[in-house]
Amino acid sequence: MSAETAPPQPARRRIRRSPGDRLRDAVIALAGKDAVLARHIEKSWASITFAGTRHTLEIVYSGDGIAAGERFIADLPDHEFALAGQLVADAVIVSADHALLPEPRLSVTCELLLLEEG
């Protein structure tokens, strides 16, 4: 008798998330379930002693979600991010634009400086 064997399974590829991916996810988690990420720009940054990346994120809230946007504006500058091997050295709100028509909308742009812990 021959034993039947299952065909070999392909190796599962683990997708490696970058520090920028983890930062973006942490910011969106802080922004709340009503937040919609409209834009994320990442640029390399370095000084004489530090290296990292500067991130610009635009987050949009609409309708009843605007209250969550107001909380995000208040909470971001003092929020302690927990990102392994990385330090959020600066987190600021760059702009907050309100519109009433065609529906209430709040667009928040923030910048974060992410440094490699060494």
Rank of each mutant, 00 (worst) to 15 (best):
L76R: 01
T56R: 13
F50D: 15
I59S: 02
C110Q: 07
A99P: 07
G52T: 03
P10D: 06
E42S: 12
A38Q: 10
A67S: 13
L30A: 02
I15V: 14
V27S: 01
Q9K: 04
V92E: 15
W45K: 03
H79N: 06
A6E: 12
T109H: 05
V92C: 13
T53M: 14
I73R: 10
E80S: 11
R14K: 04
G20H: 08
Y61A: 03
A29G: 03
D97A: 10
P102Q: 06
D64E: 15
E103M: 12
A67Y: 09
I93W: 00
H79G: 07
A46G: 02
G20F: 04
H40F: 07
P104Y: 07
A35T: 02
L100E: 14
A35V: 04
I28Q: 13
I41R: 15
V27A: 01
F81N: 00
E4G: 07
P77S: 04
V92F: 10
P10Y: 06
D75G: 02
R16P: 00
R105Q: 14
S18A: 02
E111L: 08
H79I: 08
R14A: 06
T5G: 05
L115W: 10
H55T: 11
I93D: 01
L57P: 00
A11P: 00
E116D: 14
E116C: 08
G63T: 02
P104I: 02
D75V: 00
L112P: 00
L57K: 03
A82S: 12
E42L: 13
R13E: 05
P7D: 09
V27M: 00
R54P: 02
L57C: 06
L115P: 00
V108S: 06
G63P: 01
L76C: 02
A6S: 10
L37A: 07
A91F: 07
G63W: 01
E80Y: 05
L115C: 04
L87G: 01
G20I: 05
R13K: 10
E116H: 13
R14I: 07
R16G: 02
S62Y: 13
I66H: 07
I59T: 05
L23C: 07
D64C: 11
S107V: 12
L101W: 12
A46F: 08
E58R: 11
D21F: 04
L57A: 08
D21T: 04
Y61L: 01
I28M: 15
L23Y: 03
C110S: 10
P8K: 05
L114G: 01
R71H: 10
R17H: 05
R16M: 03
A84R: 15
E117V: 14
A38L: 06
H40R: 09
P10Q: 06
R14M: 04
I48P: 00
T56D: 13
E42W: 05
L100P: 00
I66V: 15
T53S: 15
A96E: 03
A99G: 12
A84M: 12
A68N: 09
P8V: 06
A51G: 10
E80R: 13
V108P: 01
R71A: 13
R71L: 09
A11Y: 00
V94M: 11
L106C: 08
R24Q: 14
R54Y: 09
K43I: 08
A96C: 08
E58I: 08
